[in-house]
Write a protein that binds this DNA or RNA. Structure first.
Length: 485
DNA sequence: TTACCTTTAAACATCA
DNA sequence: CTGATGTTTAAAGGTA
């Protein structure tokens, strides 16, 4: 299954989080990073690229082979090792985490320890209702004592989606859950109440009008409200053990996973176990098929972003004239436009409403599948985040292309609003925003800094602007939210 | 701290 | 009448 995107957060992180290491630790880190990643992802483009990226000397500026990066580390990494959940890439600290360089090839140890833990559970008594440990891939058939990491909404959604008719009576929803999540066979009976409670209160589910000729006995058939189906898909996508979660273990190691004990770091696996948690066609024949249909290929986004960043960096660092006398960076207009386009596509306001197949990407959890979710799809536009403003390049030609998704909340013509609430049809007018030359210069500077950051993260020395260093760590780690402030 | 979300429990009504 | 189903309310815990 080909999925996942390099989302706005990732992009913003790459653009803004300039890694800062000392020269000594930089070379050391690079070497260890290459070694560890080569083991974790043998033969991957990432490994090859990292191998190629080892500079011959510290003072020799490393030349990046565009095709290596653009062809692309991210893309192949995802294809080989499974797609990556959006949020997982937001933290690139794992690249700098020295723990990453340790404890390779300990997967079997964890499997064993997990097995021992489970045995211990049985010895010590059942631990039902325990949440599944975050660092262990969840297998519903295996971890029968662990409470599934899915909300009841997701369970119901999966059950209904996994049915041929996409509608089920409560009884069959029970059966599906019991069949796919044996945990509930021994769980307290209250879960059925919870299922009914969810069906009743959650707006994502609705009863099918009873067909007179079709008697199913007591009760009604339940189905997914088409308006909210994308939200449920998105919620499912965000669950911790969704197939796109695999690199989470690498990207955001749980504290317990890498916690140091007195005798040193406990060896725990870093090698991703991919495919463990996939929506298995075997377990979920209809669901897996439908989810697959809901995905889209956005590899080109990532490749374009990487390629454009490299090109921009190459331009700015390799061509001294790229920086004009007044301090403004002048990347080629073409590249700038491409980057802008990608940037816009990856900004929250774009993503907030960007529909990937059937998946609507929301940043607000309440828009996923909550009881109170309102008119998410019926309101295709909403006030954009200030990130858009921050990264609005003010190009009018491009504005038209993206005005549907990105806009500034301050720029709304609020004539339709009476008391701050959206008008009934949620239609609002957009007034294009124009940046001042100063803003544009600042944004261009950020692009170059971002390219620097990306290359630095890959262990490539650059001559570009860098962030201040404080104790070996970046003095300022920008996040999309901090940028928005 | 607050607001919101999710889960759980419970009471009650309706229906087959 | 019984049990399944559906609705509603409330409380507790988690999270942003």
């Amino acid at each position: 299954m080909k999925e996942s995107i390099l989302n706005d957060s990732v992009f913003m992180t790459l653009l803004t989080m300039a890694p800062t290491r000392t020269e000594e630790s930089d070379a050391h880190m690079r070497e260890r990073l290459v070694n560890s990643l080569s083991q974790s992802f043998p033969g991957s483009a990432l490994s090859r690229a990292l191998q190629c990226m080892q500079p011959e000397s510290d003072d020799e500026e490393f030349k990046l082979e565009d095709d290596i990066l653009s062809s692309s580390c991210f893309a192949e990494l995802r294809l080989e090792k499974g797609p990556i959940e959006d949020d997982e890439l937001t933290s690139l600290s794992w690249l700098q985490d020295t723990n990453l360089l340790q404890n390779i090839n300990a997967e079997e140890d964890e499997e064993n320890s997990e097995g021992q833990k489970e045995n211990g559970d049985t010895k010590e008594g059942n631990h039902y209702n325990q949440s599944h440990p975050p660092h262990v891939p969840y297998n519903p058939q295996k971890h029968v004592n662990s409470k599934p990491p899915y909300s009841f909404s997701c369970l119901i959604f999966m059950a209904i989606e996994d049915s041929p008719q996409k509608k089920l009576p409560v009884k069959d929803i029970y059966s599906w859950i019991l069949g796919h999540f044996p945990y509930f066979q021994h769980a307290p009976t209250g879960w059925k109440n919870s299922v009914r409670h969810n069906l009743s209160l959650n707006k994502c589910f609705k009863k099918v009008d009873k067909d007179r000729g079709q008697s199913i006995g007591k009760g009604s058939l339940w189905c997914i409200d088409p308006d909210y189906r994308p939200n449920l898909l998105q919620a499912l996508r965000k669950t911790p053990y969704h197939p796109y979660h695999q690199l989470q273990m690498l990207a955001n190691p749980q504290p317990s996973q890498y916690s140091f004990v007195q005798n040193g770091p406990k060896p725990l696996p870093l090698t991703p176990r991919l495919g463990h948690n996939s929506i298995s066609p075997h377990l979920f024949p209809f669901l897996s098929k439908r989810l697959a249909q809901s995905n889209c290929d956005i590899d080109s986004d990532i490749q374009d972003v990487a390629h454009t960043l490299v090109s921009l960096k190459s331009f700015s660092s390799g061509n001294s004239s790229a920086k004009s006398s007044d301090g403004e960076y002048s990347p080629s207009e073409h590249q700038r436009m491409r980057l802008k386009r990608k940037q816009r596509q990856l900004t929250p306001s774009y993503h907030k409403r960007r529909i990937l197949g059937d998946i609507v990407c929301t940043l607000v959890p309440s828009e996923d599948h909550t009881y109170s979710v309102t008119n998410v799809l019926k309101a295709p536009v909403s006030p954009g985040s200030s990130i858009d403003e921050e990264y609005d390049f003010g190009d009018e030609d491009e504005e038209e292309e993206f005005s549907e998704y990105s806009f500034n909340s301050d720029e709304w013509d609020s004539a339709d609003e009476v008391d701050g609430s959206l008008p009934a049809n949620n239609t609002r007018r957009f007034v294009p925003h124009k940046n001042t030359p100063e803003e544009e210069a600042e944004e261009q500077k950020k692009i170059v800094e971002g390219a620097d950051a990306l290359l630095n993260l890959a262990g490539i020395k650059t001559n570009g602007p860098s962030s201040p260093v404080v104790n070996g760590k970046s003095a300022r780690r920008n996040t999309p939210s901090s940028l928005a402030r």
